[in-house]
């Protein structure tokens, strides 16, 4: 059974431990600015929302990459950027309708969540279980997927 990140914003306290863990494992330093998961703080509503790539089936980023630098990890379902192949053209950053692929100017490559190869650090670091890594059919990702389908320029026709 494939797993995915399940995010429950009601449990999030906005501590950013997920961003710390993500930047640590991916960049080797504690640097929330380079985290693949971001917590949005809606201050005047008292609402904190962690947000990252859902590894959507449509894989806009992967489809749009002109040099095959984003590939599917068959085991985890993650769409993974190869630093060796990415040329930094940024097409994926505008193609992803969820805004979860970012350009990292200091490396000249793009960055996105790769599920840490199947053991996501953000979920492990979350002190309140607002981020968990669970069986995919548990995640209620439907909401996100509906959103994805609406963005689809026609892909609801089964491929």
């Amino acid at each position: 059974m494939q797993k995915s990140l399940h995010i429950d914003p009601d449990k999030c306290t906005g501590c950013l431990q997920c961003e710390l863990a993500c930047s640590h494992v991916n960049e080797g330093v504690f640097n929330p600015a380079k985290s693949r998961i971001k917590v949005f703080n809606f201050h005047d509503q008292g609402r904190m929302v962690p947000y990252t790539c859902t590894q959507c089936d449509e894989a806009w980023c992967m489809q749009a990459c002109p040099v095959d630098a984003i590939t599917l990890d068959a085991e985890t379902g993650a769409k993974v950027v190869s630093d060796a192949l990415c040329v930094g053209c940024k097409v994926c950053t505008i193609a992803c309708p969820f805004g979860t692929v970012n350009y990292n100017a200091s490396t000249g490559k793009v960055i996105k969540c790769d599920l840490c190869g199947g053991d996501p650090e953000c979920a492990k670091a979350c002190p309140t279980a607002a981020i968990t890594y669970v069986d995919a059919n548990w995640t209620g990702l439907d909401r996100m997927r509906q959103w994805a389908a609406k963005t689809d320029a026609g892909a609801q026709a089964e491929a």
Partner: peptide, 10 residues
Amino acid sequence: VTNAACFGCT
């Protein structure tokens, strides 16, 4: 409304 953390606070 909710409890909230400062940076890095568990």
